[in-house]
Nucleic acid binder design. Structure first.
Lengths: 222, 222
DNA sequence: CCAAAAGTGTTATTGATACACCCATGC
DNA sequence: GCATGGGTGTATCAATAACACTTTTGG
């Protein structure tokens, strides 16, 4: 950084979130319907202006709580978008984040005003405001790539889960089937899974062992 | 993004660059000595304020040309840092980039005023201004990680190079030795290398085949 | 006893690693 | 002719992929 440069008109700074969950065998993203100009009435990913004395990450968690009503979830910075014309009115740069929410954490209606917040399957989204389509595509690509070499998918699972739940999440995100025996071998070999004593007793079939993820904060690469 | 929020005082936006090269068997980073407050006289990574009607990437390329005098080099966005107190005077958020420059592209003195621009080995850097130490560490970590699963290292090589040059770059970045035969097998198996007819005739030994990288824009993951 | 998902091993294939000698040139 | 780095193949080991049947529960 170098303060020698003339400090031209500074852009506005926002934080936008691509919030994912998995339900009904689909990877879904949370979208909100814009109430104000520009793009009034258009769907967009949730976001907000960065506030004074608030870090970027704090802003992201604030938006997450406002829109999704959840607190402790997986959050990672995605990318910063700043083309001069990405907002038709002001110069705005936006720092984007990916958030992952286990579907079970969303038992409540997503927002009091249910009409303007909804989940869409990522391969069936409406037209989006600003460059949000580009942001969403970038986020999906990152999530799919990281699923292959990191433990990111655990952000989409509840505290305790069956190995078949884990496999289903992988299959939905990576859009491919895995062999059950090889999958289980591979997952157990990572050493990241811990058996809980408990078993899942729902369903008219043999009960499944419930596992938990050992280190919920761990991610392997950037 | 949601313009319902009160738009509080907006922070300044800068672009900072971690510029890497390899020379003298070391991974090196370009640092500049600050001429003005705050941190006057302190080393820092080069950067500057984002200008009106300039994209983030354009700003990064501008800084790159101003400080390093190079145009077409590998550039990738690293991370955006925005803690409220990271600049002691103003609220500044900085979008950081990694740039890679082949040492050979830097035949000219790095800057007209050579006293305030210098290359430091990444494991022997002085105290840095602001949070630039954190930025640098983050960049080194990213570079090392990506060297393992992408073709990023080609940004540090000239147009034409020997396989032994490629191997040396990998060894320096990843800080480990590789077996020559296995290394060459692996590299040729990627299909990203193309033989040029030419041979390197410098040195009192058998001439080496010169290769070039097929797709200089390709990167595997984010 | 039937339906539904859980759980479990072995073989074949592929990719990664370890390792040592001859070659072409300049001086 | 010698010093210097360039160039090459095989055998072992580890990781991944293919593949089918038995178990436990609820209804």
């Amino acid at each position: 950084m170098d303060t020698n440069y003339v400090r031209y008109e500074q852009p506005g700074v926002t934080v936008d979130l691509v919030i994912f969950t998995v339900s009904e065998e689909k990877l879904k993203v949370m979208l909100v319907k814009r109430a104000s100009q520009p793009f009034s009435g258009c769907w967009s990913v949730p976001g907000g202006f960065l506030r004074k004395d608030e870090s970027l990450e704090d802003a992201a968690f604030r938006v997450l709580e406002e829109k999704a009503g959840v607190k402790k979830v997986y959050l990672e910075q995605l990318y910063t978008f700043g083309k001069p014309d990405r907002d038709p009115r002001d110069r705005i740069i936006t720092v984007t984040y990916i958030a992952l929410i286990p579907w079970k954490s969303l038992a409540q209606p997503v927002s009091k005003n249910v009409i303007d917040v909804a989940w869409f399957s990522v391969d069936d989204v409406p037209d989006l405001a600003f460059d949000h389509r580009e942001i969403l595509d970038f986020a999906v690509q990152r999530l799919r790539a990281k699923a292959g070499y990191s433990s990111i998918v655990y952000g989409l699972l509840p505290e305790r889960f069956r190995l078949s739940d884990l496999q289903k999440i992988y299959e939905i995100i990576m859009n491919q089937k895995f062999d059950k025996r090889n999958f289980r071998k591979r997952m157990l070999a990572t050493g990241l899974l811990q058996e809980t004593g408990a078993k899942d007793m729902t369903g008219a079939h043999r009960p499944a062992m419930l596992y938990e993820f050992k280190k919920r904060e761990l991610v392997f690469f950037d």
